[in-house]
């Protein structure tokens, strides 16, 4: 009796060790690239891309030699000021903010209707949204370009915003729909009996209860707009570029000039907001990812 439990305990201890080791490995794999790049962004190129030893990147031998200090903000200065990265940051802020707000506004209305209508067409709209959700964005972009050139609306921030809102809708509708389903129907019905129109019930009774769902969905709309490359790279003119296409355009021009550190600095700058986002909204992100899973 005690013998078997000893074996069992030993085996479970081995298992625990293996699983801990595995987890540590994963955490390194997941996080190390970011830490390394953040660290390296304060070095000069010959350290970060060192021909001699990777230790140079750690201690900044050439950085010290060239700038007199082990850390340098040259990359950031070059990207933000010399290459006008700040402008892309402003554009990104405008685009993501507008996309999030508009997506949520029309998405909550639509998601609510889909969750409360028992009619068949609601079901078919959801299925159509699922198919739309699967469309690779670049294929849609290839549909936009020519008409947008002809209509003379290519290149503007507003155009990209509208397009991103639309591309975002299928996902937003699905997610909000499943959040609305979790709110009892009795709530809006009592409001309507109490004297509200459908819209007032939605606005005064349902939405106040829905905030967690709305915030979660908003995070994902934000991420979609923020992370997009296909739409913003193809639909924005040079002046209106947001961060991601701007970074990609750095690669073309800067690498040759030997200023790849501009791109590294820009990448780190663009990653920072995402870090903060996960830090503050981890729970909402997790609940959003699972909301779709449980209901959808």
């Amino acid at each position: 009796m005690s013998g078997t439990s000893m074996i069992a305990r030993r085996r479970s201890r081995t298992l625990a060790t293996v699983s801990t080791l595995f987890l540590i490995t994963w955490l390194i794999v997941a996080a190390f690239p970011f830490l390394w790049t953040v660290w390296g962004s304060f070095k000069v190129e010959s350290d970060f891309f060192s021909r001699e030893s990777w230790l140079n990147a750690l201690f900044g031998v050439y950085t010290e030699m060239q700038t007199g200090a082990p850390f340098t903000g040259d990359g950031y200065y070059g990207a933000w000021i010399t290459r006008d990265f700040w402008r892309a940051v402003v554009n990104t802020a405008i685009v993501t903010l507008c996309v999030t707000v508009i997506s949520l506004t029309i998405g909550t209305l639509g998601g609510y209707a889909l969750a409360r209508s028992g009619h068949r067409y609601a079901f078919w709209i959801l299925i159509a949204a699922l198919v739309f959700r699967a469309m690779p964005h670049i294929t849609l972009v290839s549909g936009y370009l020519l008409p947008f050139f002809e209509l003379n609306i290519w290149g503007h921030l507003a155009t990209s915003i509208v397009v991103l809102v639309a591309i975002n809708q299928p996902f937003t509708l699905w997610m909000l729909h499943s959040f609305f389903l979790s709110i009892p129907k009795d709530l809006d019905e009592s409001a309507m009996v109490d004297g509200c129109t459908r819209f007032q019930a939605f606005r005064w009774v349902v939405i106040p209860v829905m905030w967690p769902g709305v915030i979660t969905t908003g995070l994902f709309s934000f991420l979609l707009a923020y992370n997009d490359f296909a739409v913003t790279a193809m639909l924005l003119s040079q002046d209106n570029q947001t961060m991601v296409p701007k970074i990609s355009s750095f690669l073309g021009s800067i690498q040759e000039q030997g200023n790849v550190m501009f791109a590294v600095a820009a990448v780190v700058s663009a990653t920072a907001p995402l870090f903060l986002l996960v830090m503050f909204f981890q729970r909402q992100i997790v609940s959003g990812l699972t909301a779709g899973a449980v209901k959808g």
Binding site: G110, H119, T139, Q169, R198
Partner: peptide
């Protein structure tokens, strides 16, 4: 939910999807 109310609520989302997802597919 009556059809009319449903339509009023869903219209913006559906228009966005029709104009910028369905129509581009036609354009393609």
């Amino acid at each position: 939910m009556p059809h009319k109310t449903f339509l009023a609520f869903i219209l913006p989302a559906v228009i966005a999807m029709l104009l910028f997802i369905a129509l581009p597919i036609v354009s393609v």
